[in-house]
Amino acid sequence: MNDIVPATPHDLSFLGLFLQADPIVKGVMVLLVMASLGCWTIAVEKMLRLRNVRRQAQVFESTARSGERLHPPSTGTSGRIIAAGHEAWRDRDASESRAERRERIERAMRGALAADLRQLQLGLPFLATTGSAAPFIGLFGTVWGIMNSFSAIAASQDTSLSVVAPGIAEALFATAIGLVAAIPAVIAYNKLTTDLGRLQQTFSAGITMLGDRLARERKPHLRAEAAE
Rank of each mutant, 00 (worst) to 15 (best):
A154I: 05
E217W: 07
N148Y: 03
G178V: 05
R216E: 10
G211D: 07
S78P: 10
Q200V: 05
L32S: 02
A134S: 03
R218S: 12
L161C: 02
I168N: 03
T75V: 12
F18P: 03
A99K: 12
V53Y: 04
R69V: 11
N190W: 12
A185N: 13
A115S: 03
V25M: 08
R216Q: 13
R118I: 07
P6K: 09
H86K: 09
V28P: 05
E170Y: 05
P125S: 01
S66K: 14
G85V: 14
A83C: 12
R92S: 14
S151L: 02
V28H: 04
G131V: 02
H71W: 09
T193H: 08
A134Q: 00
A169E: 06
R92P: 01
V30E: 07
A181D: 07
E228C: 12
A154P: 10
R90S: 06
R49S: 15
L32Q: 00
G79H: 10
V163D: 03
R90I: 14
D22I: 01
E228M: 13
P72L: 13
W89T: 02
I81S: 10
A99C: 06
Q56H: 07
S74L: 13
R54E: 04
A35F: 08
T129V: 06
P9W: 13
N52V: 14
R92D: 09
Q58W: 04
A171I: 04
A224V: 05
L12F: 15
T208R: 11
A83V: 00
V164Q: 06
F14C: 12
V143E: 02
H71I: 06
A226N: 05
T41F: 13
R54G: 13
P184S: 15
F173K: 00
I105G: 03
R104A: 14
P73R: 12
G123P: 03
I42T: 05
S62Y: 11
T129C: 05
